[in-house]
Design a protein around this nucleic acid. Structure first.
Lengths: 154, 154
DNA sequence: AACGGTCAAGAACGATCGTTCCTTTTCTTG
DNA sequence: CAAGAAAAGGAACGATCGTTCTTGACCGTT
């Protein structure tokens, strides 16, 4: 069946997720992806179809593999505002969701899961119907990210 | 002293702020700005120096003119999550501040003001040292924006 | 060992990016 | 009413964007 591919699709997807978590979608070029992921253009387009396809795959992977452990921490009452695991979701929500229906759907689904995890958190049992706990968490991470990342080399 | 300029600098700055509130910085091209603001390229570059200069001017204008009325509403205990007045600040915080020190400084200043306004809000007098009220507000607007703007023609 | 299909390597595509230059028009000023 | 300065108009710059094409190397199959 021809030559086998020389890269692990999941590893590449995870690396792409990390890149997209650092800068905005338009701020990550295909050249950046090719260089950082170590995968040739052709292979990226053959595997993911387009830059958007790779982005969606990365977002889905992130939601499937990075969010579950986070929800566990949240349900256990841990503090996670320093964890950059929410960054890709933040960027997706703010700058992609308004322009991409699929991204919006994924973001909404992620929030439902995070919300449920926070409902189970010990500190928030008294919370009402509104998910203010998640809102506060998102805001907290938003501020941490904006103020801290000014000088870091990502 | 030559021909007077045919546009109001403040009007243009406000319009630019609205554009940058809708899409990410890299998603707004100079062509978009020229077309939407009705000002010629040369005039934009003469007045603001660069695209980033116009962005910074727009952000500053937004912080000076759109945020004060918002802080008043907040201090009065009003609900403002449906108000898109926070959108430019959200985008600036998430995608520009990590890459631009001046943006980060402006965003930090804006948060200080919003925070103080919320400390004065009647519903949040019991709040502790942490500014969870502002965090919750930011998260709330974040979610509202992501879920609502999927089909709107901005 | 020869085939056939997949991958890797890299050049190249048109389009668009932010920015600059040149020319023409319009206004203020003496 | 000239003279000069600044704005408008628009083409053009090199660089980079996402995407595709062409060529040759590789490997599983018969």
């Amino acid at each position: 069946m021809g030559r086998p591919r020389g890269f692990d699709e999941e590893v590449v997807t995870a690396a792409a997720a990390e890149l997209f978590a650092g800068r905005a979608y338009d701020g990550v070029s295909v050249d950046d992806l090719v260089q950082q992921l170590g995968v040739h253009r052709n292979s990226l387009y053959k595997t993911f179809g387009s830059k958007r396809g790779l982005y969606l795959a990365a977002l889905r992977w992130h939601l499937d593999h990075r969010l579950p452990p986070l929800t566990e921490q949240l349900a256990a009452g841990a503090e996670v505002a320093d964890d950059p695991a929410l960054d890709l979701l933040l960027l997706a929500a703010v700058e992609r969701a308004p322009r991409d229906v699929e991204v919006a759907a994924l973001v909404t689904k992620a929030w439902q899961e995070l919300d449920q995890a926070l409902q189970r958190a010990p500190a928030n049992h008294t919370d009402g119907t509104r998910s203010t706990a998640l809102n506060a968490l998102l805001g907290e991470r938003l501020r941490a990210r904006a103020t801290a990342a000014t000088t870091d080399p990502s």
